[in-house]
Design a protein around this nucleic acid. Structure first.
Length: 563
RNA sequence: GCCCCCGUAGCUCAGUGGACCAGAGCGACGGCCUUCUAAGCCGUGGGUCGCAGGUUCGAAUCCUGCCGGGGGUGCCA
């Protein structure tokens, strides 16, 4: 499923990689037509961006071709190179080592591309790779039974960045939050809050066995007392609590929205579980499954029995007491996404604690046949976020009330650093968030380093507005070209990050670009009395600023003009 | 027991089949402000890529086993 190379992408400035890949294909065809290389099935040449002493771009395809063709890789590489059509972008091609084909990008060509970057503006880096295909990204979807945890923040930031990436790559993206405003947990929340509500008003009620114990429960109760007075008294019984539950959920959801707003995370759709249940979708999907023979009755409960070959075991759909499980509801929900709303692809971003749910959801989707192509439902599992406070790793658990909230993290380190931190690691690696360290190192945080690079670009242009220059004819240095060449790699990074579902690639690219730029800044002066060189370097700086801004935009991090 | 993720520099993490791919940030140490923001730059030190096999022309990267850490494993969500 991961796509490492995207020959089809088109943008204002075609990716260098795509150009070279096409060039190599032509070279191979020509070599084969000339009889220099044996016939092969169509070959897609992948290219690695190295940008080091060995090459700017390199392909090792000849090494793999050697097996198919039955010739020495070095000879194949040389034949391809000998038949390569000329390209203005390429200054030099050579074979090296066991059979690598190495490309050097032409300096003048690179500098010419700068105007295309600034002309493309905010769209530079984007592409039409997605072809407008409809993708839904569902993330956060935390129960409104308490404040968002730091872990939920990770999922939120990752889902949001993924949505931004997909959008930039030409997909039609819908961002969704699935609101679990029904079911057992909501009942318990209602009872928990009611306990404090009644107590505040001098009435008594028992605290539920598995009740929520966080401080916020009493706070929510107080808010309801303030807003609604005693009108809910006497309704808190388990069978008559719908309205009260809904009030509690409302308060929980409002708090969640505030956190997400502050993090810059938005949704197109807040999908209500309760509304879906009210439409009868859960009964409907169980009926559909039953018709296809995936349902069995046992021990008074209704079970889903996965198809042969599924390694997932059997799971309950309807409890013996008559209410549907989360599993059943989630199947109905996903059926809604595919069959009713017609998304071509759905990406769910889940927390690590849901990983056990992945296999059975795929099994259920398989059974429903709504996504016979298993790739239509992608489930990304973000790993745990350990919060380190005072050197100790705290245990997380919403019901116990012992967890670090996203709000606490936001208040400590701010939205930019929070987003940066979550987006600097691969999602499948567990990470440690040391609050003390994040606080203490505030000024050292890499996110400010990147933002500083952007602010510097802006500052240089402010200086240039009032600068006096005379005519000159200075040429640019290899450092100018190297910086420009790095900018041209941005679209490649974006499409890779998108297709591999790895937003952290953008983060690392930006850090690298900022490093190169800061170094350049210290070494070379942009605004001088040499009018020609100043103009050319200003164009470079504008392009750097554009790429930094676009990259930060993909991460949802502000790009300040001044710091 | 079974399932998932991880094990790379003192710390937090990139790199997941290619040849200078052994890296970054932070921390440590030493330099650099009369010039576009020193929230910066330059330099030094630091790792048998958990261990053992295997596949391959080539493995930090793929496979197997083991060891270690975290999480999941409910008619909770």
């Amino acid at each position: 499923m991961p796509v490492r190379h995207d020959p089809a992408s088109r943008g204002p400035t075609p990716m260098i990689r795509s150009r070279l890949s096409a060039l190599l294909s032509d070279g191979l065809s020509a070599a084969q037509a000339a009889g220099a290389v044996a016939a092969t099935p169509p070959v897609t040449f992948t290219l690695e961006r190295r940008d080091d002493d060995l090459a700017h771009y390199s392909s090792s395809e000849a090494l793999r071709l050697a097996r198919i063709v039955g010739a020495p890789p070095r000879a194949i590489a040389e034949s391809i190179v000998a038949h390569l059509p000329p390209s203005p972008a390429v200054s030099r091609v050579e074979t090296a080592g066991p059979g690598f084909i190495n490309f050097w990008i032409d300096d003048a060509w690179v500098l010419q591309q700068l105007s295309a970057i600034t002309a493309a503006g905010t769209s530079f880096g984007g592409s039409s790779a997605g072809g407008g295909s409809r993708v839904q990204v569902e993330y956060v979807s935390a129960n409104p039974t308490g404040p968002l945890t730091a872990g939920a923040g990770r999922g939120g930031v990752v889902g949001d960045a993924l949505a931004r990436l997909l959008d930039a790559c030409g997909y039609e993206v819908s961002r969704e939050y699935y609101v679990n405003d029904a079911g057992h947990q909501v009942e318990i929340l209602g009872q928990s809050v009611y306990h404090y509500y009644a107590a505040t008003l001098g009435a008594g009620s028992s605290f539920p066995a598995d009740g929520y114990r966080g401080d916020y429960v009493a706070e929510w109760a107080e808010q309801i007392v303030r807003d609604d007075g005693s009108r809910w008294l006497g309704t808190g019984g388990p069978s008559d609590a719908r309205g009260f539950e809904a009030r509690a959920v409302e308060i929980g959801l409002a708090a969640i929205r505030r956190d997400l707003d502050d993090l810059g995370i938005e949704f197109d759709e807040w999908f209500s579980e309760q509304a879906m249940r009210d439409r009868g979708d859960v009964d409907e999907v169980i009926h559909v499954l039953d018709e296809q023979g995936f349902v069995a009755q046992r021990d008074g409960a209704v079970w889903f029995i996965g198809g042969a070959g599924e390694d997932d075991r059997e799971n309950v759909l309807v409890r013996s007491r008559g209410d549907p499980t989360y599993f059943a509801v989630d199947i109905a929900y996903h059926r809604d996404k595919f069959a009713k709303r017609g998304f071509e692809r759905v990406i769910d971003v889940w927390g690590a604690d849901h990983h056990g749910h992945v296999a059975r959801m795929h099994a259920a989707m398989q059974a429903l046949d709504e996504s016979a192509d298993a790739a239509r439902l992608e489930i990304l599992v973000t790993q745990m976020v350990g919060i380190r406070t005072d050197g100790a790793l705290g245990r997380q658990g919403k019901r116990s009330g012992k967890f670090v909230t996203l709000r606490e993290v936001l208040d400590e380190v701010g939205p930019a650093a929070t987003r940066y931190f979550f987006l600097s690691k691969a999602i499948d690696s567990q990470m440690e968030f040391d609050l003390e360290l994040a606080k203490r190192e505030d000024a050292e945080n890499p996110v400010y380093y990147i933002q500083m690079a952007h602010a510097r670009c802006a500052g240089i242009q402010r200086t240039a507005e009032t600068a006096r220059t005379a005519a000159g004819a200075a040429t640019l240095t290899p450092d100018d070209v190297a910086l420009a060449r790095r900018l041209l790699a941005f679209p490649e990074v974006v499409v890779d990050a998108c297709h591999n579902r790895e937003p952290h690639r953008v983060t690392h690219y930006l850090l690298d670009l900022a490093r190169v730029f800061h170094s350049y800044y210290n070494k070379h002066r942009v605004v001088t009395d040499d009018a020609d060189r100043t103009a050319r370097r200003l164009e470079l700086v504008r392009a750097v600023q554009q790429v930094l801004a676009n990259g930060l935009g993909l991460l949802g991090i502000a790009a300040p003009e001044r710091m």
